[in-house]
């Protein structure tokens, strides 16, 4: 009996968790000192495929990624780049293993990403909107 209740509770909490995930909105962030106020989806796509290397002000871009199989990463690439994570991985493997490109640096979670962006003027990243604060600047809403 107890077991059943636990099972039910577990099921409900999983539902709750997954619903918060799917409702969470991702935002693209940069260092507050970056003069960029907004960015287009196309430009973002090019940055995350390693095709655009500089901000309009000439700063070399250092893009950041969420963990490999994270929900955030999956959603970002689906909505912004239009590719599944396997397609993205196949794309980068062609560049990485010919020495032609280095993919975005991976950081563990929103907190780490936020503190990295806050201290690196050249960085760009995406996090859950609820974790955004004054330490960084939002330049794009992922929809």
């Amino acid at each position: 009996m107890k077991n059943k209740i636990f099972k039910k509770l577990f099921f409900v909490s999983v539902l709750l968790l997954s619903s918060t995930y799917s409702n969470a909105e991702l935002v693209v962030i940069v260092h507050p000192g970056n003069s960029l106020e907004a960015i287009t989806k196309d430009k973002l796509k090019r940055i995350y495929l390693g095709k655009n290397k500089e901000f309009p002000n000439g700063l070399i871009i250092a893009a950041l990624d969420q963990e490999k199989e994270s929900e955030e990463k999956e959603e970002f690439y689906k909505k912004v780049v239009g590719k599944s994570l396997s397609q993205v991985s196949a794309y980068w493997s062609r560049l990485i293993f010919t020495g032609k490109g280095v993919p975005p640096r991976v950081l563990a979670n929103d907190k780490e990403i936020k503190s990295w962006v806050a201290s690196h003027p050249e960085s760009i990243a995406y996090i859950n909107s609820e974790n955004a604060d004054d330490s960084i600047k939002i330049i794009f809403d992922v929809k």
Binding site: S89, A90, S93, R94, F97, T98, G99
Partner: peptide, 22 residues
């Protein structure tokens, strides 16, 4: 520019022929 021992870019996949996932 690159200098050293390099892969031939002779065909679409020749530079990453060993990378099956590509």
């Amino acid at each position: 520019a690159r200098m050293g021992r390099l892969n031939f870019p002779a065909t679409l996949y020749s530079e990453y022929q060993e990378i099956g996932i590509s």
